[in-house]
């Protein structure tokens, strides 16, 4: 839904406030989970899942990505592919070490 009319924007404002509350709750959850001092693997997994969820909320609602044009999605998909390559570099280095 593109927020163009005043009514639509008013509706979006309610959504922004809900997203804000969700982000605050998730921040508290992130800190609470870290105080449990889980094993490194579990801690990384949980922290990254929560952070990704928070990032999705920010990008989806505040950056209006849920209702964006195709060209922006294409740009971001391409960026995502290159980002994954960057993240794969240290992993490939790790695998090298194992071999």
């Amino acid at each position: 839904m593109e927020a163009t009319s005043i009514e639509a924007v008013k509706k979006s404002v309610r959504t922004y406030i809900l997203v804000f509350v969700a982000l605050m709750v998730l921040t508290v959850v992130t800190v609470a989970v870290s105080s449990l001092h889980l094993s490194v693997g579990a801690a990384i997994t949980v922290a990254l899942i929560i952070a990704t969820f928070k990032a999705t909320l920010v990008a989806g609602y505040f950056m209006h990505l849920l209702s964006e044009r195709k060209l922006i999605y294409s740009t971001l998909i391409l960026t995502g592919i290159f980002f994954l390559v960057l993240m794969f570099l240290p992993i490939s280095h790790m695998l090298d070490g194992l071999g």
């Binding site: 992130t30 870290s34 928070k54 950056m63």
Partner: peptide, 16 residues
């Protein structure tokens, strides 16, 4: 975007 980067920085640098 600046907020989004911090959302990842905070757990990665401070909490892990």
């Amino acid at each position: 975007f600046v907020d989004l980067v911090w959302i990842f920085l905070f757990p990665v640098l401070y909490l892990l």
